[in-house]
């Protein structure tokens, strides 16, 4: 009797039917705890800190594109107010200077963008301005690489990218914020 039952047991297989349940349980756990992280952002390289004030640069004022953002989030571009949706187009024109105007950059390599903001400027506006300026450069790079290689800038290899970015270098300098409109 006992012998027979042990033989029976040997023939039994482990029931794998509950495996699916266990896996589902784990699956649901991971589904709930997952946060598909939105780890994307505007990449910026800050200038390194130095305690001495930088030597005054001799810059031709025609090559500087100054963008001021005040504490009520208004833009002043080269002394003229400008809505933010025009910023990208105007920046592109300034850098490339297609009509060879006297008051715009001598060449893309000479062009310099300068941003200055108040302490009361909202972060949203600041990032938007930065984003527009970066977009202007990205579009110029795309156009240049289409012309030169017939490809988008993203699809170029490292060497080709360098050729493009050295012809149109991205120079955005940021001045210290002015203490105005500090948060209450």
């Amino acid at each position: 009797m006992a012998k027979k039952s042990s033989k029976d047991r040997m023939n039994n297989e482990i029931n794998a039917g509950s495996m699916a349940d266990i896996a589902f349980l784990l699956l649901i756990f991971f589904l709930v705890t997952t946060t598909i992280a939105e780890d994307k952002g505007v990449l910026v390289k800050l200038p390194p800190w130095s305690d001495e004030p930088p030597p005054p640069l001799k810059l031709n004022s025609r090559n500087v594109y100054s963008v001021l953002v005040n504490s009520s989030n208004q833009l002043l571009v080269r002394g003229e107010p400008m809505p933010i949706n025009k910023l990208k187009e105007n920046t592109k024109i300034f850098i490339m200077n297609p009509n060879k105007l006297e008051n715009m950059s001598e060449s893309p390599t000479e062009a310099l963008i300068s941003i200055k903001n108040d302490r009361g400027t909202s972060y949203k506006t600041y990032l938007e301005v930065y984003n527009e300026l970066k977009a202007a450069y990205n579009e110029l790079w795309d156009e240049a690489s289409q012309k030169k290689f017939g490809k988008n800038f993203e699809d170029l290899n490292k060497d080709q990218r360098e050729q493009i970015t050295s012809a149109i270098p991205l120079v955005i300098s940021e001045a210290e914020a002015t203490a105005f409109g500090e948060e209450k």
Binding site: E38, D39, K40, G41, V42, L43, V44, K45, L46, P47, P48, W49, L127, Y130, N131
Partner: peptide
Amino acid sequence: ALRKAGQVKVNYSAKK
């Protein structure tokens, strides 16, 4: 503070 600490690569997190 980041610049003083020598951390110059910064990514402003944003939505697409």
